[in-house]
Amino acid sequence: MLGVRDLSVRIGRHEIVSIDELDLPAGRRLGLVGESGSGKTMTAMSLAGLAPAEARQCGSIVLDGHELVGLGDKQLARVRGAQMGVIFQDPLRALNPTMRIGRQIDEAVRLHANLSRAERRERVLELMSHVQLSEPERLVRRYPHQLSGGQRQRVLIAMAIASGPRLLIADEPTTALDVTVQKEILGLLVRLSEERQMALLFVSHDLGVVRAVCEYVAVLYGGRLVETGPVRTVIHRPRHRYTEALIGANPGHASADDLAAVNGRQLTAIPGVVPSIDAFPIGCRFRDRCAHAVAACADDPPMERLAGEHRFACFNPTIAAKEWELDGNAR
C-alpha cells in the first residue's frame, strides 16, 4: 500500500527526514511517534506528498503503485485526492467558522463525486452516521463553534473519508480532547479502518495512544527512524534507548498494581529538550540526552534487524531485550 525506501527530505542544508525503510500494508495501522520537533509531522507530510515546496526529496515513496517522489504538484494532488484523506490536531482551525457543517461536508463530497443535490444530501447524512454523529439532520445546520471538540473531530473525519480513501493520515487527532472523548474517537478510527480496509498513518507524541490504535509503530527522533516493528513488541521489548525513554516518561499505568508501585514517585523523564534542526549531535542524534551513550554513539548507528519485522538503530540497546532473547531461546 505505502512503501518507503531510502527516503531523505532536505530543507536547505538540513536533512529533516531520513527513513531507510518503512511499509504500511493495505488496511493496516502504523503510528509515527516521537516528541515535538522529532520530525513526525514532516514525515507524515512527506509521505502524503504534502512536503513544503522548499523541501527536496530523494529516495522512493510508493503509494498504491504510484511513485510520489518526483511527481509535480498537480499529479500529486490527483493521486492524493483519490487515495488519501488527512485530518489534523485542531479541528476548529481546519473548519470554516462561517459555514454550516452540512455545507462543509457537502463540499468534500462534491470534490469526489458527481452527484445530484438530493444524492449528495443523502451521502452527507450517511457519512455523518458513519462517524457516529447523532441527530445528523439537526447538526448539518450548526456552525463549528456550536459543536463540541469531539463532534468537530468527527466532522473532519467524515470529510476526510468522503472520497473513500485507502489511506487516512491523522496528525495528533485527539491531543486536544478529553480522555473519554479521545477513547471514542480512537475507537472510531480503528473501526473505520477495519470496516473500510483503510490504512491509517497515525501521528502522536503519546505511545499509549499509538498502542491503543496501531498494529505497527515507527519511533522517530531528529527526523530519523530509530526503531520500528509491531507495536506490542516495540512497547514491551523496546531496544532503542529513545523508545525506552519515551515509555518511561509516560504517566499511564495499565493496572492498579502498577499504580501502587509508582504513585507519588518521579517519572523517568528524558533530560533536556529536542534541539533545533541544526543543533543535533553528529552520530546518534539522541546522544546528548541519552543516559546510555557510549563512545561508538558518535557514529551513525546502523539499523539492525530482529525477528518479526522489529528493527532498531542503537549502539547500546536495552538489557530487557537481551533478557527477552534469552527467554526466547529457553522457550
Partner: peptide, 8 residues
C-alpha cells in the same frame, strides 16, 4: 491509552 509498564 496506558502502557503496560512504565520504565520497562
Amino acid at each position: 491509552v496506558s502502557l503496560p509498564t512504565t520504565g520497562v
